[in-house]
Computed example of a mutant assay.
Amino acid sequence: MPEKNPPMSPSSDNYSRDLPGWILSSQVTALVLFDRDLTIVYMNAAAEMLLSVSARMVLGQPMDQLLRCPQDVMLQHLRTVTESNQPLTEREIILSLPDGHSITVDCTLVPVDSDQRQGMVLAEIRRVDRQLRLTREEQLISQNLATRDLIRGLAHEIKNPLGGVRGAAQLLAMELEDTELGEYTNIIVEEVDRLKSLVDQMLGSRQLPVMRSVNIHHILERVCTIIEADPEHGAVLQRDYDPSIPDLQGDADQLIQAILNIVQNAVQATGGKGHILLQTRVLRQFTLANKRHRLVAQLNIIDDGPGIPPEIQERVFYPMVSGKSEGTGLGLSLAQSLINRHGGLIEFTSEPGKTVFTLYLPLENNL
Rank of each mutant, 00 (worst) to 15 (best):
K324P: 00
K324E: 09
Q298H: 08
I302G: 03
N340R: 11
E326N: 15
Q298K: 14
I339C: 08
Q313T: 04
E326Q: 15
Q336I: 07
R315P: 01
P309Y: 08
A289K: 10
I301P: 03
T328S: 13
P319T: 04
P309A: 14
G305N: 09
V321G: 05
I302L: 01
L338R: 09
F317Q: 01
R341M: 14
N340M: 12
E311A: 14
L283G: 02
G305I: 03
L332P: 06
L330M: 12
Y318A: 05
A289H: 14
S337D: 12
L299E: 03
G305L: 04
L288H: 05
L295G: 08
G305M: 06
L330P: 00
T328C: 02
Q298I: 03
Q336F: 01
L283E: 10
L283H: 11
P319Y: 00
N300H: 11
S322P: 03
Q285S: 11
Q298C: 08
Q313M: 07
I301F: 00
L295T: 15
Y318D: 09
G323D: 14
L332W: 00
E326P: 01
S337Q: 12
H342M: 09
D303Y: 04
F286D: 04
S322N: 10
P309T: 08
L288G: 01
L338T: 01
H293S: 05
Q336A: 11
S337H: 12
F317G: 01
V316R: 02
I308E: 10
I312L: 11
S325F: 01
T328R: 15
S333E: 04
P309N: 13
S325L: 14
L332M: 10
L334I: 11
I339K: 04
F317I: 01
P319E: 06
V316K: 02
F286T: 03
S325C: 10
H293Y: 13
V316S: 07
E326M: 12
F286I: 09
P319N: 02
S337V: 03
H342W: 10
V321L: 04
N290A: 15
I301T: 11
G331A: 12
V282F: 00
K324A: 11
Q313E: 08
L283R: 12
L332D: 02
N290M: 12
Q298E: 11
L288I: 13
T328P: 01
S337F: 08
R292F: 03
E326D: 15
L334M: 10
V296H: 02
L334F: 01
V321N: 06
I312W: 10
R341F: 12
I339A: 07
T287H: 10
S322A: 07
K324G: 00
L295M: 15
Q336T: 03
V296F: 01
M320S: 06
G305P: 06
G331Y: 04
A289D: 13
R284C: 09
L338I: 01
G331C: 07
P306T: 08
N300C: 09
L288R: 02
A297N: 07
P306A: 10
